[in-house]
Amino acid sequence: MISKNLIVRTTFYLFIATMLIAILIPVFFFVSTSVYSEYEVYDFPRKFLPRTSFDLEIEWENDQYNLSVFDEANNEYELLIQSNDMDRFRLYLKRSLSIQLNNEEIENDFSLSKKGEPIYLTYKKDLFYNYKTFFSITNNAGKSVVNSVMAAGWTIIISLFFGSLAGYSIARYKFAGKSQLSLTLLVVRMFPGVAIAIPMLVYLIKMNLDNTMIGLAIVYSVGNIALTAWITSSIFTGINIELEEASYIFGASKLQTFRKITLPLAFPGFIACSMYAFLAAWNDSITALILSNNNPTLSLVIYKAIGSSSAIQLSAAGAVILILPALVFTFIIKNYINQLWGEVKL
């Protein structure tokens, strides 16, 4: 009896540990990449944690400074750049090593090596250099966050409204053509969007929905209504019909029953659907690019700033900025999926 329990518990903890490792390790490396300097991205093998500083060796030779960085893997200094132009060093330190200094500081520090011996300096790396770069080339990040929230909000409202109505009808009623109609709902998810994206958006532009958040939400909701319909339908089906019938017996109207009994029990399902709706709206940049370029969402702003850059560390920083609010949303609603918000279980 004890050993069986032990096996069960061990499997339990093993499963949890695997989950945590499999999810958190990639996330950790992704966040690390977002604070890497350009040098670190390609350094190999690199340490587990991102650098906070660089150890440099400066040598004065042939009328130039030789700048080398300490490479721990090979335990030696690696020559990176030779110059006597302070401006060049300033830009190099900034762009490759995320070290921010001005020309005088560099001149003062480096000139000590003119005495003949190489000097050793340690400079602090600006961990948030990538984030600062991002904000310096965008100027409407604030408004775009509001836009994203609005687009996501509308998407949730539209999907949930249209979808749950359809879902309830499928779950609770028998009618001719029910299975065919419920399959038809899913067709919008079966037709690949790649080839029809532009024509569909052009119709919306002609309806004067360009540069509006509700226009975006309309596009995002197309697939989400079907999804919501099916998910809510399965949830409604799972709610014991006798509970509703008991409620009628006690004199409640159909609407009251729906509000007080059915809806609260279906709530976790609604939350799951709103998660899909939110993310569909929050993470899209291509539809936003074509439909609402002059009124961008956060995702679009990030895409335009660093989407086409080949600097991975910059793209990672942008992605982190985009993910954070989505994580906040997820954190808030997680309790509602797992019904940890109150005793409505019977």
């Binding site: 532009i198 024509p199 002609k206 370029n293 335009k304 086409s308």
Partner: peptide, 17 residues
């Protein structure tokens, strides 16, 4: 000034609409 990768789609939509 905006710098983007797949301008083709943007142009296609502007032309079509």
């Amino acid at each position: 000034l905006e710098v983007i990768d797949n301008i083709e789609k943007v142009m296609e939509a502007q032309k079509a609409s």
